[in-house]
Design a protein around this nucleic acid. Structure first.
Lengths: 204, 204
DNA sequence: GTCTATACAAAGATAGAC
DNA sequence: GTCTATCTTTGTATAGAC
């Protein structure tokens, strides 16, 4: 009985988070109001506060949700760790990127959420500032070495960092003009720029 | 007499725009309040409205200011047009990018403004949506052909588009963590990724 | 768990005095 | 050109009933 109630509450919370994500994608976190969330969920504004405590609390829930949902392509890298399927082999940057793009292409809303929050988090005043900085560091930090398989003379970390930046930039265009830009198709073309072919033969 | 008044008014407007840019960089356009602008300028909130008419009007002034100030690297391309200094020669993508990065490195505030407004403009609800979409199209549109000098077999338009996206991504990291990231130095390294050296010899 | 009622602050905008 | 005064709406948050 208690379990059923808790499950219902969990679902309510999920509804609230979903609504918040939609609104953030339209108006940003600054433009988000608890009343707007309440309206979409179909309860009152104090009803929303009952679940998240405060507006900041709602953002925390949203970020947590994002974190839980969005880290799927990391699975690829795990396959190369000791004791896993591809132990001994090395992951390839282009392959990893392709996987990420493919995945993101089907999660437009989540990609948008990331871009919006990430940009608002540029400002130190943003409640998400610390969180996104830490996250960004993981991408561009030289310490993060996945032992990529790359052609001789190529700096793996540099290439990966640059590729992720280009991906981010392309995502922005795709989000703003989904009808004009084919995210996956465009990325496929960019592979020839980032990983030119005689050189990267066998490393893609 | 009338001219002096007009000059003073023009300066006031500039103060207002400057204040707005600062605040947008901290809180975004959604988080911008006319009162906050008024406080920084040292007049009242209706005083601000007297100059810009409405909040949307203020945004228009800000965008106009950005447009007037931020398009300096286009000068480089003009040098290659008929009747100009480098007529007959061809512009180089890496050189153009280097110029742009160099310029942007000294205009952190303006770069931030662009990223913040550009991201908010992802949403069709944003008052700047149309403006930034048009702008983005100019970067990624195949019609914009500057007759770049590129190595044989290289797709100039594709390379330029990808490079601009990578630059945008790098800018985002630099803006969020200026102490950790050296924008120009990092871009210099990325040149080896985007324009690898045996191939691009003489085209940089 | 959800509601009503309410407090309180801040938003954008207008009217009109000086 | 700048102000005060004011209207109206919207924001976050709390208290307490059901």
């Amino acid at each position: 009985m208690a379990k059923q109630r808790s499950a219902a509450a969990q679902e309510r919370l999920q509804q609230i988070v979903d609504a918040a994500v939609e609104i953030i994608n339209e108006d940003g976190y600054s433009g988000l109001s608890l009343q707007a969330v309440a309206d979409r969920v179909g309860i009152t504004q104090p009803g929303v506060l009952h679940y998240v405590g405060s507006k900041k609390g709602l953002l925390n829930e949203v970020i947590e949700y994002y974190y839980d949902t969005h880290d799927g392509a990391v699975e690829y890298l795990k396959l190369f760790e000791p004791g896993q399927l591809f132990e001994g082999k090395q992951p390839k940057i282009p392959e990893y990127c392709r996987l990420l793009v493919e995945q993101n292409a089907g999660r437009r809303e989540l990609v948008m959420l990331f871009q919006v929050l990430n940009t608002e988090a540029i400002s130190p005043k943003s409640p998400a500032h610390e969180y996104f900085n830490k996250r960004s560091r993981n991408i561009s930090n030289p310490e993060v070495d996945h032992h990529w398989a790359v052609p001789a003379g190529v700096d793996a970390q540099l290439t990966a960092s640059c590729a992720m930046a280009a991906m981010y930039g392309l995502e922005g265009r795709w989000l703003a003009r989904p009808d004009e830009i084919d995210y996956m198709a465009e990325w496929a073309k960019w592979e020839d720029v980032l990983f030119p072919l005689p050189l990267w033969e066998g490393y893609r």
